[in-house]
Design a protein around this nucleic acid. Structure first.
Lengths: 328, 328
DNA sequence: TTGTAAGCGTTATCAA
DNA sequence: TTGATAACGCTTACAA
């Protein structure tokens, strides 16, 4: 496999000049550049990232650690982050831990070995040591959608979002409000729940029922909502702490012959594409996920370049009114 | 930053032995191993992947090139492939081209520079040169969901799937069948369409209307279906060449006050989670996406290890009957 | 504008 | 079971 040395020989120049051409650094005369580029193409030269990394000590790569890729939220996040990083001249090293600590540990080791310039980490399980190891290694760290000790954090104000959901339902005249959600251990979910409860308390109310499931999966969410309904509680509105949970509630309601929104209003959270798939379309609180991803990249760049962190506020959450809510 | 040399010094041994411990290769006495591991932990030693790559010439990494990560199909695929690769001792280098040739070219270069042991490439735009460059570089290549010259291909039989859709509708007594889909340039979509048309032809029929949109996005799909409906064609069943397209058809139908499945039956293709979100839930042809991902990994392993390729048949496609189809 | 030369941190071969 | 040593291919001062 042709190396820089062979290129230099054939082009009648030195390896230093070839390196300059390959990296676009330093001065090279147009004639020389053209000649070298020709030889590079001829010999199908492919630079060796290992050698470059060894010399440079850094890789212009940013690790992106996510718990899953088959979950829409993370898929979108990965996409936005990749775009942002690319635009700034960095490559994304996307890793998904698949909820497995073993995977996670191995990918963290791989990132460290790869000498990534930083890591953007999205809501990994609480008992994971990934963040700690990264911090210990002195790698710039940006947490997305959760807080991590020693790391900059970028996330929506889930508590405010919870208040918003309750507020909107209250404004519609609903008083008997039930809440369903999952996964129960997720911090954002708990914060939204707290927001809902607090806002209701201010109105002298409390949820008529709360039910959180362990798994954030459609079928499981339907079951959680069905179980709640089976207790016989009477609600005139239901809060889904995520869009999936709201969709689960709608299906559970439907199975019982209860109409949405005529009998019961339903509101979700996230505004993922799925919110628009149901009929009627789901009213939900939109989470500015793309802005979150973009801001995470921006903070990472600042961290890596030593610039001051921005204290920019996240775009506000907002209720997207669609068809599953109605005045009481 | 501590290197293997320093570790050796502090442990009172040679770098060769340290290397053996780090890589778990060769013989090292338990006592020596313990001592070295202690020092490694103390100094927070992190191996340098660049140096290792330079020496070894390969990275035990497999590139995974996808057009997007925020599309459910690819998210699931990436997830399955990552899992399979991990289980075989390889790391996945997941790259998404974001539909941009520029991104794609750069990631291909990065993969080449990284000396990946192989690349699994999923349906990238036809005019991309990615596959060609990879083939030229002699990198083992497995194409998923599309065919690429010079590469092993793993994909569902979309043509058969198309026939299956038509077949099922025909069996229900439908005769006036319209077809909508997107993106029109995608080979799988065209193959499904061919399957539908051929099966109808065997029954002496042809689609009452066909409409393909350029973008596979929910809103765009609704518009495509609405435009088809606006022409005034009378159909008693609609085929969505993807689940999204089918969902778009349902929404367009709904907007016109046409009931599903009472007035018009709708069938989709893929069986993504979204098929279950709508009410009634979508009847669709299930694509064995997880098996496809797993098989792609298996073929890649065989390619890399020089084993014979398997000629295993893909699990058959099947109609998942849910609520959007009814007897005429 | 181009060339010289000194490593970078490993792995693997061979010898002990 | 361990050690010495020679690459691996590149970047980057510094010199010319």
């Amino acid at each position: 496999m042709a190396g820089i040395r062979e290129i230099a020989e054939r082009a009648g120049t030195s390896i230093a000049t070839v390196s300059r051409v390959v990296n676009g650094s330093g001065y090279v005369s147009p004639a020389m550049r053209a000649k070298i580029e020709t030889v590079i193409a001829e010999l199908q030269f492919r630079p060796n990232a290992g050698a470059a990394l060894m010399r440079r000590g850094k890789s212009r790569m940013v690790g992106v650690l996510l718990p899953a890729l088959d979950v829409k939220f993370f898929g979108i996040l990965a996409h936005v982050i990749e775009q942002g990083l690319f635009a700034r001249g960095y490559h994304a090293f996307i890793c998904c831990s698949s909820e497995s600590p073993e995977h996670e540990a191995e990918y963290v080791a791989a990132m460290l070995a790869q000498r990534v310039d930083g890591v953007i980490i999205a809501s990994v399980s609480a008992e994971s040591t990934a963040a700690a190891r990264l911090v210990a290694a002195g790698v710039p760290l940006v947490a997305v959608d959760r807080e991590i000790a020693g790391a900059v954090s970028v996330r929506a104000d889930h508590y405010a979002g919870g208040r918003l959901m309750a507020d909107y339902l209250l404004g519609l005249g609903h008083r008997r409000i039930a809440v369903v959600g999952a996964p129960q251990h997720a911090m954002p979910v708990q914060q939204r729940l707290a927001g809902v409860s607090d806002r209701l308390a201010e109105a002298g109310l409390e949820p008529v029922a709360v039910r959180l499931g362990p798994r954030h999966q459609f079928e499981a969410c339907i079951e959680v909502a069905a179980a709640l309904l089976d207790t016989g509680v009477v609600a005139d509105a239901m809060v889904g702490l995520t869009d999936i949970a709201a969709l689960g509630a709608i299906h559970a309601l439907h199975a019982k012959g209860i109409r949405v929104p005529e009998d019961v209003s339903v509101i979700g959270f996230d505004d993922m594409p799925m919110a628009r798939y149901v009929l009627p379309q789901l009213t939900t609180v939109a989470q500015p996920i793309r802005e979150i991803g973009a801001l995470a990249v921006e903070q990472m760049i600042r961290l890596m370049t030593g610039a001051a962190l921005s204290h920019e506020e996240l775009p506000a959450l907002s209720v997207v009114v669609r068809g599953t809510t109605a005045r009481r």
